[in-house]
Every structure is written in structure tokens, then in C-alpha cells.
């Protein structure tokens, strides 16, 4: 038998102490995390519960669990006080989001590819300008943009919401794609050029597939941000028939009657659904895309 080094009782006690301390510290950490987490989700949980309450109960009981669950809020809310049902507003939201998402993906890819892979005169200055717009607060450009679109005559249409994004107006996405592209070695693109691909073919057949995780994140971000955007539609859309969900929700608050909170909450829950659904569907790619350098060696 080989001699096993003797572990003294002292060391054993020490190890035991350390283990206990580690356990206490992790219990503490997780408890804290759970408490903070609960505080953060509670409003959501409450909203979901309250959407099944009657209007009277919402203010009478602090618990989120409805005493007499009812879907009346959903039924009434869906009908709305306008000539349209909520389906119309969902449709409008999609009409805004989908072209905007596609436009963003295409235009930002083109611009990012240009910046990441080609040299051209004044590249540095132009790139700095693009990045500078990232730092510019959105509100600063609202008024000039409004005036511009008014002069073109695009007010009360979806065009002011689509066009800036379709022209790679979202510098953040351009920046994100450039960072991602920089982490991808150029060899594959060079191999494609040697194989006879022109610039556009290289982009479509080689770069875009490699860029996919990042592109999916771009689309997801654009989806969620547009879904939640309130100010944009508020400024440019004036007729109710063009309203997206974000405006429609506020519509119910505007009406002169006493607010039907249960309807508002019910519709808010529905409004959350698409974003959540899309997020969970694409979660895997999404995480891959925002942690840049997603190419394995």
C-alpha cells in the first residue's frame, strides 16, 4: 500500500469551515437575487392577474389573484371604443414592423459590409459621423424630421416610420454588425472571390450566412423596439385607422368615460405577447448574436 499523506484534523476542520462559509454565502446571494427579481417582475405578474379581475376589484384588493376571474376585460377591450377591433391595431403594428425590420436588415448589412471590408475616400470621417448619430439624443432630430416629412407629404402614413430605417438610419445596428463582421476572418470572402464571386455574390452567399446570428438579433431588437415605440407613431400618425397597438392602448385611456382599467390591462397583456413569443423563439440566436465574435475557429 502506498502511503497516503496524512491530513491533519486541523486541515479537515478548516476545510469544513470553508465549505460552510461558501454555503452560507451562496444562500445569501441567491436569496437576494430572488427578492430583487421578484420585485422586478411583480408589476407584470400583477398586471396579468388584474387583467382577469373586474374593474371594481382592481382597486379594492392588493392581491394579484382575481377573486372572481372573468375574461370580460379581454372581450370588451378587444372590441374597443372605436369602429375597429384590436385586430386592426395588431395588423397595423405588423404593417409597420415587418417592412421596417426587413429594410433595416438589408440596409444595415450593406452599410456595415461597406465599412468593415472596403476602403474608400473619407471613410474615417463618414464612419465617425455614423457613430456620432448614435450619441445624438433621438429627440433632437424629431422636429427637423417632422418638418421634412410634412413637406414631402408623408404625414399620417407609415412611410416616415419605414424609410429612415430602410436607409440604415439606425446607427446602432450598423455598429453592431460592423463589430460582428470584424471578428470574422476575411479568408472565406477571399476564397469566394477566387472562386469567381463578385462583391454582391460574396455578400449574399458567404457574408450574410456567417452574419446570420447578428442579423437575427438586429431583427429582434427592431421588432421589440418598434412594437414598444410610442413617440414615433404618435407624431406621424393621426387617424385612428392607422394606429399601432402602442397608440391604441392609450386610446382607451383617452375616452371620456371612467377608465376601464381591466380592459387596458387585458390588452396590455396581449400587446406583450408577440414580443415575448418572438424572443423565446429566437433566444438561442439572439444570445449568440449579441455576444460578438460568434464564429468558431
Amino acid at each position: 500500500m502506498t502511503a497516503i499523506p496524512q491530513i491533519s484534523a486541523d486541515t479537515l476542520a478548516n476545510m469544513e469551515k470553508q465549505r460552510r462559509r461558501a454555503r452560507v454565502s451562496s444562500t445569501f446571494r441567491y436569496s437576494l437575487l430572488i427578492i430583487v427579481g421578484l420585485i422586478m417582475v411583480y408589476p407584470l405578474v400583477w398586471m396579468f392577474g388584474a387583467s382577469f379581475k373586474t374593474n371594481a376589484e382592481i382597486f379594492s384588493s392588493p392581491s394579484f389573484w382575481p377573486k372572481e376571474p372573468t375574461v370580460q376585460g379581454y372581450i370588451d377591450g378587444w372590441q374597443t371604443s372605436t369602429p375597429y377591433t384590436f385586430a386592426k391595431f395588431f395588423g397595423n403594428s405588423m404593417l409597420i414592423i415587418i417592412p421596417k425590420m426587413i429594410g433595416t436588415a438589408i440596409s444595415c448589412t450593406l452599410v456595415a459590409y461597406g465599412f468593415a471590408r472596403f476602403d474608400f475616400p473619407f471613410k474615417k470621417i463618414i464612419f465617425s459621423t455614423v457613430i456620432a448619430t448614435l450619441l445624438l439624443p433621438n429627440v433632437v432630430t424629431r422636429i427637423p424630421q417632422y418638418l421634412l416629412f410634412r413637406d414631402i407629404g408623408w404625414l399620417d402614413s407609415f412611410l416616415p416610420l419605414w424609410v429612415p430605417s430602410a436607409l440604415a438610419g439606425d446607427a446602432f445596428f450598423v455598429f453592431m454588425l460592423i463589430q460582428f463582421l470584424r471578428a470574422i476572418p476575411r479568408d472565406m470572402e477571399e476564397a469566394a472571390r477566387v472562386d469567381g464571386a463578385n462583391t454582391l455574390q460574396t455578400l449574399i452567399y458567404i457574408v450574410v450566412p456567417m452574419l446570420m446570428p447578428a442579423l437575427i438579433s438586429v431583427c429582434l431588437f427592431q421588432f421589440m423596439w418598434t412594437m414598444n415605440d410610442f413617440l414615433g407613431p404618435l407624431i406621424y400618425l393621426s387617424s385612428v385607422e392607422n394606429y399601432p397597438i402602442s397608440l391604441a392602448l392609450k386610446l382607451s385611456i383617452d375616452t371620456t368615460e371612467a377608465f376601464a382599467w381591466n380592459q387596458i390591462l387585458a390588452m396590455s397583456c396581449l400587446a406583450l405577447a408577440p414580443s415575448l413569443f418572438v424572443f423565446f423563439m429566437a433566444q438561442k440566436y439572439f444570445i449568440e448574436g449579441i455576444s460578438t465574435g460568434g464564429v468558431k475557429g
Binding site: P185, D187, M188, E190, A191, A192, V194, P209, V295
Partner: peptide, 13 residues
């Protein structure tokens, strides 16, 4: 011409 690259440069997808 055709070229073989040091790190293969196969199209990953």
C-alpha cells in the same frame, strides 16, 4: 487560378 489558404477558408455554412 485557384488558391488553397493556410487555414483552409472553407465556407462554414
Amino acid at each position: 487560378i485557384a488558391m488553397v489558404f493556410q487555414n483552409y477558408a472553407l465556407y462554414p455554412h
